[in-house]
Design a binder for these strands. Structure first.
Length: 551
DNA sequence: GAGTTTGAAACT
DNA sequence: CAGTTTCAAACTC
């Protein structure tokens, strides 16, 4: 199926073909490119994309400002036929670069203040621009105005180029497919708004960096503005969520206090949820070691500290669960729709659930990320205000909460704490809205709802982990108790284990009750841990909708 | 701008 | 599949 991807002012369509097919559209600023696409007509493409319905609207730029209206298809069709390609249905179509967006990791267009600008041309000397060394070739575009020598990546050498493409595809059928997992947000790279737009997608093959720490553009992940993932085989990677170096890089480069706040919030939240939820650089380094209970780290998704809130919490009772503590999404609005997370790729169902959750969140966060010329987000303002210590009063007035009130007169809080508090206040905002207080701005409301949703996810995950822990301990203790009881050949009617199990049982009941009060929509994507009383009185943890999870 | 470093791609 | 070489971009001076 043809998929549409809206990236700023461009829409890229990906056809399930191994050939790159990049089509120009409407000049440099508005481009529609088809990536892939052997033998399909514009009509097919149009219907597949659903120009007439709402495919684009679903993923589009938010606030109803869709850059590609129906009538804009006309120039597209014209250009398709006016393409320099030798045949109407080229087997290896390419287009001239200046008008082509790029489907690979290295963008041909760099976003500058929301405006795509041509990236510099290639300088190939020995490859004749017929190998993947050449960015143009790799991007599926003809060289045009490049500084290359003996270039064969042009219309004149179509036959040669065709052979080269075939050879390349023979080596690697996916050679012309995007290296980075699709994300409509990853291109966004303006200096003003780098706030964790990085947390998107992942490198399909992963990088193999050794010396750059994955914090230089040598690293394809870094270059693509994404975090390294479990696919990467890099050494001494610093391109992961929570990395101080990476944080410093972002912070130093852009001086974006919000970025820092959000990242600090991520860190703080991770730390708050669990000691192993937040990965220090040192812990990241453990991927090359076997520190996690002697289990091969390669088998676990620890490459990135970020896990989807519902991903793999309980799959591995050991290391993986330790690393799967939900993180930054709750505190990081920009990472919401995109959180580059390393999920434990262990179960397709789980993945599907994740994607559903992801897409639902991404949808709601699209306007924030995609709308270039938006007025300052009230949420950001509130964060900034918060950092200046001017917001707490406002929040107190709005929410009437004792929480913020209680913070007065105390020592200054760390950025992480402040960011966390910001989230708390977001929750309070939601509560306020639920109490029929005057609504805030729509965008703000969406954001706060998102935060609430995230917090729910986080809390759910946390609760689930605690439940597992309790149940595990209870079950084990009960088991040992009964064993010892048998050994003593005594027949106590009320073994210790029972008295122990009562406590968590009631606790579980309480928690379960709490969980059930969540709207179905909020946790439908996530497995719900419950307890089941076995015949021997032991409590058996169960996970709804996730019976694949290891017990 | 020249030289060096780096890591992906290509090759063996 | 692992090791080596080639290549061009990124980086440094």
């Amino acid at each position: 199926m043809l998929t549409a991807e809206v990236t700023g002012s461009c829409v890229k369509y990906t056809w399930p073909s191994r050939y790159p097919f990049v089509l120009p559209f409407n000049g440099a600023r508005n481009s529609i490119g088809f990536t892939g696409g052997v033998g399909f007509t514009s009509e097919e493409a149009r219907s597949a994309v659903g120009f007439h319905d709402s495919v684009l609207r679903g993923s589009g730029g938010g606030a109803g400002t869709l850059p590609y209206e129906h009538q804009q298809l006309q120039p597209l069709q014209k250009q398709m036929h006016a393409s320099p390609l030798p045949t109407p249905r080229p087997s290896i179509p390419m287009s001239i670069k200046p008008e082509s967006p790029k489907g690979r990791s290295r963008p041909l267009f760099e976003m500058k203040e929301g405006t795509p600008t041509r990236k510099k041309n290639c300088n190939c000397k020995h490859s004749r621009c017929l190998k993947l060394y050449c960015e143009c070739f790799a991007s599926g575009v003809f060289c045009d105005g490049c500084n290359c020598a003996n270039c064969c990546n042009n219309v004149e050498n179509e036959a040669t180029r065709h052979e080269a493409v075939e050879a390349t595809l023979e080596r690697n059928p996916n050679a012309f497919r995007p290296k980075i997992g699709n994300s409509p947000h990853s291109i966004r790279d303006s200096k003003e708004d780098v706030v964790e737009t990085t947390l998107v997608g992942k490198h399909n093959k992963g990088c193999h960096c050794k010396k750059s720490g994955c914090l230089k553009k040598y690293c394809e992940c870094f270059q693509a503005n994404i975090l390294c993932s479990e696919n990467c085989k890099c050494i001494d990677c610093k391109n992961f969520e929570g990395s101080e170096e990476r944080k410093a890089l972002h912070h130093g480069d852009h001086g974006n206090a919000l970025t820092y706040m959000q990242q600090a919030a991520n860190a703080a939240l991770n730390g708050a949820i669990g000691p192993s939820g937040y990965f220090s650089p040192a812990s990241k380094k453990r991927k090359n070691q076997d520190l996690f209970f002697g289990t091969s780290v390669k088998d676990q998704s620890i490459h990135s500290p970020v896990q989807y809130p519902n991903a793999g919490h309980v799959k591995n009772s050991g290391p993986s669960s330790l690393t799967s503590v939900p993180t930054g999404r709750a505190a990081n609005p920009a990472s919401l729709g995109s959180a580059k997370a390393t999920y434990s790729v262990q179960d397709e169902k789980h993945l599907e659930m994740e994607e559903q959750a992801e897409s639902s969140l991404a949808l709601s966060s699209n306007d924030k990320i995609e709308t270039p010329a938006r007025p300052p987000d009230p949420q950001k303002i509130s964060v900034d205000d918060q950092s200046n210590g001017t917001h707490s009063d406002k929040m107190t007035e709005e929410s009437g909460s004792d929480f913020v009130e209680g913070q007065r007169g105390r020592r200054p809080m760390s950025p992480g704490t402040l960011a966390l508090m910001c989230d708390e206040q977001d929750m309070m905002c939601v509560s306020s809205q639920n109490n029929n207080l005057p609504p805030i701005l729509p965008n703000n409301q969406r954001m706060t709802e998102m935060y609430a949703e995230q917090e729910k996810c986080v809390l759910m995950a946390f609760r689930e982990s605690l439940l597992k822990l309790i149940n595990c301990g209870t079950a084990k203790e009960a088991k040992f108790s009964s064993m010892s009881s048998k050994a003593e050949a005594s027949s106590h009617e009320d073994p210790v284990c029972n008295s122990i199990s009562r406590i968590p049982a009631s606790a579980n009941a309480q928690v379960s009750q709490t969980v059930n009060t969540f709207p179905a929509s909020s946790n439908s994507h996530f497995p719900v841990a419950r307890t089941q009383t076995l015949e021997n009185g032991d409590l058996k943890p169960t996970v709804e909708s996730a019976d694949h999870v290891d017990k």
